[in-house]
Write a protein that binds this DNA or RNA. Sequence first.
DNA 1: AGATTACTACGATGTTGTTCGTATGTCAAG
DNA 2: CTTGACATACGAACAACATCGTAGTAATCT
Lengths: 128, 128
Amino acid sequence: MASELPRPTDAELEILTVLWSHGPATVREVHEAIAARKPTQYTTVLKLLQIMAEKGLVRRNEKQRAHIYEAARPREWTQRQLAGDLLQRAFNGSARSLMLGALSARKATREELSELRRLLEEYEKGAR
Amino acid sequence: MASELPRPTDAELEILTVLWSHGPATVREVHEAIAARKPTQYTTVLKLLQIMAEKGLVRRNEKQRAHIYEAARPREWTQRQLAGDLLQRAFNGSARSLMLGALSARKATREELSELRRLLEEYEKGAR
DNA sequence: AGATTACTACGATGTTGTTCGTATGTCAAG
DNA sequence: CTTGACATACGAACAACATCGTAGTAATCT
């Protein structure tokens, strides 16, 4: 079991983002969050959630009349998948290039840079 | 002009990768490179290149009988787009999270880590 | 010239992603 | 019990992707 989860599409990622920050939610709640940013029909969100449940991206609890959906994987797990996937597909595995790309994609603040440096230092210690 | 280029799809990115490392190439050359890694028909590559030319992802020189294709943007430019796009879509703009994801996606070597740290130090100096 | 080879152009097909309308079921209030 | 509010299910429509076959055209060989 635990078959591979597919890479979430754009629309799916939007929904996952809502679920991650909100926690388990009904279709209505997800829809409200999405519709606040762009006009979207209720049934569109419903359908997406149904498909995502089939794919295993979200889990569904049907105990209540209004089903409760939650992300099947934590945010960090999915982010790791996505980062690894892009790293492989576009950066030929070079974390350095990816970082360079991310940094130049938008001006990084001074704090952000030192935060990153600290992160790396910890990593160097931890990774022995 | 200089309208926005669309995010390249998976198949398109594969072709761009060939063009970036090989330089301007004919369909045949691109096809050979692609087919070496996975079974693919010549016309599939041709069609993709034609579509990519329409989208502006590649430029086409028709002076020769066998048209010459080349990537419209350098590798670094496209990588920056992709990194920025993912950063926005999945990491809420946090370069730190993206780096964390990339590092945990696959074990980083000791050299890679210090290389990254050096890169950051340069950036901190340069970025004023 | 005629046959063969090396191209491009393009239509067709199957799949996936995204959106939405309509049908239908459930429950509580009047 | 009927109605209205709110839910899910599901089919339909359309666009984007990816793949390939066929047709036609230009060059080259014999």
